Each structure stands twice: as C-alpha cells, then as structure tokens.
Amino acid sequence: MEKNMKRSKEKKSKKKIWLWIVGSLLAIFLIFIGTAYFTIQKTMNKINTPLIQTTDAAQPEEKTVIKKEPFSVLMLGVDERKDDSGRSDTMIVITVNPEKQTMKMLSIPRDTRTEIVGHDTVDKINHAYAFGGVPMAVDTVENFLNIPIDYYVFINMEGFLQIIDTLGGVTINNDMDLTYDEYHYPEGEITLNGNEALIFSRIRYEDPRGDFGRQIRQRQIIEAVMKKASTPSTLLKATDMLNVLGDNVRMNFSVKDLIQLQSIYKKMDKDIEQISFEQGEGQRINRIWYYIPNEEELQKIQTDLNNHLKSK
C-alpha cells in the first residue's frame, strides 16, 4: 500500500516537472514570438520608405507583390560617408516573373552616360542618386531601360555587409585569382566574411575586366546573401540581422510583400539569368571617362526586360 502511494506521488511529481518544463518552453516561445514580432515591426517601420518619384504629377499607386504578377526591383548599393550622400556604385535591376518562375538580373555600369531625369543633364548614371536620391535614380533607370521600376532597395554597402558576419560568412565560386593589398582571393570556391566580401566587391583595377568584373562579383555576393538569408537556420539570427538591416537598408516593400517574396524566391533561386552590357565602349568627353552603351544592345536588353515583365 505504502509502495503504491509512493509510486503515485512520484508519478504526480514527474507530471508536475514535465508540465513545468512544457509550460516554461511555451512561455519562452511566446516571448520569442512576441519579441520577434515587435522587432520586425520596429525594423520595418524604419526600413519601409514609400517611393515619391520626381517626374509625374500624379503618383502611381503603391504596388503590392502578387504571386503571379511580374514586377521589377532596382537595387542601389551606395557607399555613404560622413558629409557625403555618396554615389550608387552598384545599380542592379531585377525583373521577376512568378508565373514563368524566372528571374533576370542586370548590372548597369556605374559610368554609363545617360540623361539624368529631373536634373536636365547628361551624366554618369550613378550621379542620379547623388543629385536627387532614390527617386531620381529610379526615374533615370526607368528612362534608360524603358521599363517601370516597381520597387527599390537601397543598401549602405559597408553596413549591409555586416549581415555576412551575422550569417557566418557566405560561399561563392570565384572565377578569377585576384589579389588586393593583403587580400588574396584564389580561383574556385571561397568563403568570405563581411570585410573580405566588401573588398572583394570593390576590386576594379586589379581585374582586367574592370567594372564588368566587379559587377559579376557584386551579383555573386548579393545572390549568396539572399540564398543564405532564406534558409531556416537564419531564424536564430533574425534579431541581429534585423538590427543591421534597420540601420543600413531602405525599401518600399511591405511585410506582406516580403513574405510573398520569400515564397517566390524559393521557387526560382537556382534559375537567375544574368544579363550584362558587353558591347559598349569607354570614351572621354570633356576629360571625363564614360561608358557609352551600344544602342543595338541597349534596345535588345530593353525588349528582353519588357517581355519578361509581361504575363503569359
């Protein structure tokens, strides 16, 4: 009898312990979810900046990512310094067609000579941001490529690359042996931390391809970050990532858009078509060096992107 009572007490005691453990874990989980939600909302309030363009009197309605509707994104990578708004040394246009499950990524050479919309000048395309911020950069790219830009993502490159350290580094396939000061990047698969990735993305004169080689490396880094950031393991680093993003990124995507984007990107992250300008030439005008696009190639790229932004 006493033994039965003892066993019953032990069972009740174990049950209480398990209930306490489960309850504690549930409480921790709820606190984590609540904190994460608060952090996400706080970060998105800081990041989300609607685009007010500089040209049209009647502004278009803000677009919402729809699973089957094609859309375009302009990524601006800017090296901002104290007392200097910086120039958009990285300009990448991404067009996404969810229905076809395809994505195209175009790098625009920073020295491309074109009309700066809203400034009444012809200058290097990366000066548009310096003259009029994101709105003027978007207007100028729209005019240059003859396509609508639905979204933008502004990135302060130095700060943004802190995310790479938060992610534990990124791995890319380097297509050329490169050395810059004490930094050496062998050909083949390499893993980079934030500082190594920043130097890697800036190398220009050490690469015989010049700015085109740099564009390739910048796209590789962006793709690697996107891919690693979309893995489940990054959830444990979400708070740190959000803090870095809040300080260094601006965009006109909403939380709902980003959730849609994640599901869309997972379906096509291995099918990103890289497009680049290859037939233009360098030219000095009034002692300033410009990249002059080949008109036929430019028109082909414009047509390609426009077609990609059409539904079936």
Results as ranks from 00 to 15, higher is better:
G169P: 07
W18V: 15
E189H: 05
K310Y: 06
R219N: 12
P135A: 07
F131E: 11
A238I: 12
I190N: 09
E62S: 08
N243H: 13
D269W: 08
A197W: 03
D139R: 03
G23M: 10
E273W: 04
W20Q: 07
E99Q: 13
D83G: 02
N294G: 02
I47R: 11
N126A: 13
I275V: 15
A130I: 08
R202N: 09
I164N: 11
Q299I: 06
E80A: 05
N195W: 00
V225I: 15
T54F: 02
N4P: 00
D175L: 10
I216T: 12
R202I: 11
L178I: 11
E189C: 07
M157Y: 10
S276H: 11
V249W: 06
I163S: 12
I285N: 06
A130P: 03
S88F: 03
L309M: 13
P70E: 11
Q274G: 03
A57N: 03
I108E: 04
N248K: 08
D165V: 06
T43N: 01
E187Y: 04
S13W: 12
E273M: 01
E206S: 12
I147K: 01
P135C: 04
N174M: 09
A238P: 00
N286Y: 05
K68T: 14
Y180L: 12
L26N: 03
E182Y: 09
V93C: 08
E62I: 01
K46F: 01
P208V: 04
L167T: 10
L309G: 02
K82I: 06
R202K: 15
I275E: 13
S233G: 02
P148S: 08
V117F: 01
I147M: 07
S8H: 08
T35F: 14
K100M: 14
E10R: 14
L178K: 10
Y205S: 14
W289P: 05
P98Q: 03
E2T: 04
P70N: 00
R217N: 12
E69R: 04
A238T: 10
L145T: 06
I285H: 01
